[in-house]
Amino acid sequence: MSRVSKNTVAALAGALLVGCFANEARADGLTSRKTRYASPQHFALEVRFSPYTPQIDEEPGLTSKPYETTFGTMPRVMFAGEFDWQAIRIPHLGTLGPGVGLGYTNMSETARLIRDNTPSGDETSLDIWQTFAVAVLRADVLWRDFGVPFVPYVKGGLGLGLWRSGNTGGTAEANTPTGKVSGKGYSFGSHVALGLAFALDFLDRGASVNIDQAVGINNTYFYFEYYFSNLNGIGQSNALRVGANTWAMGLTFEF
């Protein structure tokens, strides 16, 4: 009974919140006016950053944790961008279309001399370029039809991580029984993301209309998402697991 009560209260609160936003939007009529006079909207551009710790040490068969041993546990920052084509507008739901993304992160540490474990003059590093091609569904019905400034979205597709391990001399080479192995390659995988965007236009709708008229940006969002970049080598026998499951935040511009 108490569980039902809690759910009921939560549902009522949500309804009130939506109703509040909706009433406010309808009251001034700006949302409908903006939609009526808005410039065409076909694309979205995202810029973001996220903490990033690649899943290298999760590779089956590893006898130690080479990534953690070398670079520690502190996440690095992944800077990324994404470009979406909002090819289809599904009435009373949102937009659907393909998108591509590109991100980069780097980690480096001072290498230590093996003979006495003192710091050397060498550096050891790892560069990761994260790319993906996804289908993006943005459910902007709440914002467009009801004036509630939240847009949930989901992305799913394929990811590709290009990586290179380097040192002071350039690309690293490991000595193996079968010869030297160059420290660079790519890892294929999947890319899935769930996120929620907050329409900044809600804060100043007049400015939003002006920006649309001036440069054609229909909506500007601040967003938070969680993504699963499982670059563990789909179709590959040996791949460096450079993907990560982590959150990201940034800005989206629809135009």
Binding site: I56, E59, G61, L62, T63, S64, K65, P66, Y67, T69, T70, F71, E109, A111, R112, L113, I114, R115, S120, D122, T124, S125, L126, T131, F132, A133, L158, G159, L160, L162, S165, N167, A172, E173, A174, N175, T176, V181, S182, G183, K184, G185, Y186, S187, F188, G233, I234, G235, Q236, S237, N238, A239, L240
Partner: peptide, 29 residues
């Protein structure tokens, strides 16, 4: 000789690298 992430990874049994990974080519994406 110095510690090196790549050497450590391979010494730990890691199999990736050398741009010789089988499977989809870069052009796949």
């Amino acid at each position: 000789a110095t510690t090196d992430f790549w050497q450590l990874y391979r010494d730990s049994g890691g199999q990736a690298g050398g741009c010789s990974s089988e499977g989809a080519p870069i052009g796949g994406l």
